[in-house]
Amino acid sequence: RYRTTFTSYQLEELERAFQKTHYPDVFTREELAMRLDLTEARVQVWFQNRRAKWRK
């Protein structure tokens, strides 16, 4: 599977959502995914990776 490349707008929005909550529920993820034209799975994985980065 190829690596997803996020646009700067998508990253800004994902980071903004991350500032609000590190653990968005499925509705929040679905809403973000639709708004950013991504799949909910991509959003979920982004948050997993972002939390890992945050913990370091």
Score class of each variant (00 low, 15 high):
42 R>S: 14
49 N>A: 12
56 K>H: 02
11 L>N: 06
21 T>K: 14
7 T>D: 04
13 E>F: 03
15 E>N: 06
25 D>P: 12
55 R>A: 13
22 H>R: 13
45 V>N: 12
46 W>G: 02
16 R>F: 10
8 S>F: 09
38 L>H: 02
34 M>H: 14
47 F>V: 01
28 T>I: 03
3 R>M: 15
37 D>I: 04
34 M>N: 04
48 Q>T: 11
32 L>W: 01
7 T>Y: 04
19 Q>Y: 02
5 T>P: 08
52 A>I: 09
1 R>M: 10
33 A>M: 06
15 E>S: 04
22 H>K: 05
37 D>F: 07
44 Q>N: 15
18 F>S: 03
31 E>F: 08
28 T>H: 11
28 T>M: 12
2 Y>I: 14
24 P>C: 06
12 E>K: 06
9 Y>V: 13
52 A>L: 08
21 T>C: 13
14 L>E: 00
25 D>Q: 03
51 R>T: 09
22 H>W: 07
48 Q>S: 15
17 A>R: 03
46 W>A: 00
26 V>R: 07
39 T>G: 07
15 E>K: 02
51 R>Y: 07
15 E>R: 02
10 Q>Y: 02
10 Q>L: 01
49 N>P: 01
8 S>N: 08
42 R>Q: 10
40 E>Y: 07
3 R>G: 03
14 L>K: 00
9 Y>G: 15
52 A>R: 06
54 W>I: 14
26 V>E: 13
8 S>P: 13
24 P>A: 04
24 P>H: 02
52 A>S: 09
27 F>C: 12
36 L>H: 02
41 A>T: 13
18 F>A: 02
10 Q>I: 03
37 D>C: 10
34 M>I: 09
2 Y>K: 09
55 R>P: 09
45 V>P: 01
20 K>L: 05
23 Y>Q: 11
53 K>E: 15
45 V>A: 06
15 E>P: 02
7 T>L: 04
47 F>R: 00
3 R>P: 11
55 R>Y: 05
52 A>Q: 09
10 Q>N: 02
3 R>S: 15
37 D>V: 10
3 R>F: 14
52 A>C: 06
10 Q>F: 02
52 A>G: 09
30 E>V: 05
8 S>K: 08
27 F>T: 14
16 R>T: 02
44 Q>V: 12
29 R>H: 08
